[in-house]
Amino acid sequence: MNLQNIINEIEKVDPEVYNKMDGRRAAMKNFTNFGSKIALAALPLAIGSMFNKAYASPTGTKDAIIDVLNFALSLECLESEFYKAAYAAAVAGTLAIPTGAPMMAIKTIRDHEVAHVNFLQTAITASGGTPKIYTAVNFDFTAKGTFPTVFSDYGLFLAVAQTFEDTGVRAYKGQAGNLMSNKTVLTAALNIHSVEARHASHIRQMRKVNGSLVPAGIDVKPWITLNQSGIATSAVQASYNGEEATTQATINIVGINGFTAVNANIASEAFDEPLTKEQVITIVTPFFA
């Protein structure tokens, strides 16, 4: 970071320093091509470096992107602390996550979320922003008493986990458009977005096996059918409202081009829907202490 620090210091005196070093487009292009050659551990730093180069001016765009990254970081903190607490409860014997595959899967997902927290934190710092970190004390996973047994009832734990993953997918999707001015950050966000979707798919399969809190007549699938949560409580419904969409960009997907197998269920499953930042904040606020 010495070089970056030096450049940052120069920037305080001469905001045009990056434009003088190389053009914004060249910086982005070079970085995009260069990405695969950078050591993975160095990637967040490299993003920050490129970021500063490209967005030394105007600062408004840079701040907007850091805001999105901090929003993403808050959600990753929520998830990572959630899985850390659940895994610890399972080890302590107070949450009955079955040993073997289920325990391994929760550990895997926990580790991914922790890695996402670290990635975003480093990227924000290296970009000249201040990461807003939330720790265990900042959360109330009972959602103010709505889910009092979330860390003692395995079925409820899985239900909340599914809701977090599906919400996370929708949250990243909703922010993609706000990252278009920075190709590297956009690609990184997309590469997290699809991992959250993989988690959602797996947690849903775990819920199907477990069967707890699954409403009668509902087959929990790896994907979202209509606006069904597949969870026997209305408390999580806001995370699924809007997923029932069957029209995409004015094109009706149901029965498209004569394919009668494409009914409303299929049409809604085939496209996941975004949530706005405001919608996501409303959903997750009860989980913040």
Partner: peptide
């Protein structure tokens, strides 16, 4: 278009995981 690609890719990721 970016949003549409995003709507589709997460479903592909759900498939991939399954």
């Amino acid at each position: 278009y970016l949003l549409l690609a995003g709507k589709i890719v997460s479903v592909e990721a759900r498939h991939a995981a399954y």
